[in-house]
């Protein structure tokens, strides 16, 4: 049970992190907010490494592109700060999830693994449900300025 709650909390932390960074961006600027996100993130990571006493586990021969995740993270954090106050938070979460899942499935396919039937059926269901709600949003006056 504890781990089930922890897993849900990990999802919550993604949302909180995104909104706090967006609110910080309003106060000090978008790029400055991303900068502070990485300063505090780095400090936290260093403290964790020391706390866990896991040492410097680095294997030789890391390909150059394996380092590019940090760069992609900067784009993701900055774009998220920009978009958070411009769109319904729930729709943002949903759109990111769908786009990420579709992209991951295509990457898997291109890397040689087959896409399972359950992934296709699940994906189609998600897109149908999304479309239904996007149509409802369009007819909802409260959503006019956000979607």
């Amino acid at each position: 049970m504890l781990y089930i709650i922890l897993a849900i909390v990990s999802g919550l932390s993604i949302i909180l992190s995104r909104i706090l960074n967006a609110n910080l961006a309003i106060k000090i600027g978008m790029y400055q907010s991303t900068f502070m996100n990485y300063v505090w993130g780095l400090l936290t990571s260093i403290i964790l490494l020391l706390f866990m006493q896991s040492g410097f586990n680095v294997t030789k021969g890391i390909p150059f592109w394996a380092y590019l995740g940090g760069m992609m993270g900067v784009i993701v954090v900055t774009l998220s700060s920009y978009i958070t106050h411009r769109i319904s938070n729930f729709n943002l979460t949903l759109l990111i999830f769908v786009s990420q899942s579709v992209t991951a499935a295509i990457i898997d396919f291109l890397l040689g693994s087959t896409i399972s039937t359950s992934k296709i059926i699940g994906g189609v269901a998600i897109i149908i449900g999304l479309t239904v709600n996007i149509i409802i949003d369009h007819n909802d006056p409260a959503m006019e300025k956000t979607v």
Binding site: S54, M72, I96, T103
Partner: peptide, 28 residues
Amino acid sequence: AAIIGFIVAFMVLVNGILTGYTDLYMSS
């Protein structure tokens, strides 16, 4: 929003590979 998800998919893949060469804390 869709572009963010698109980049996140690649980021998860690349960061996962980096973690394979190191460990969770070092890769972070």
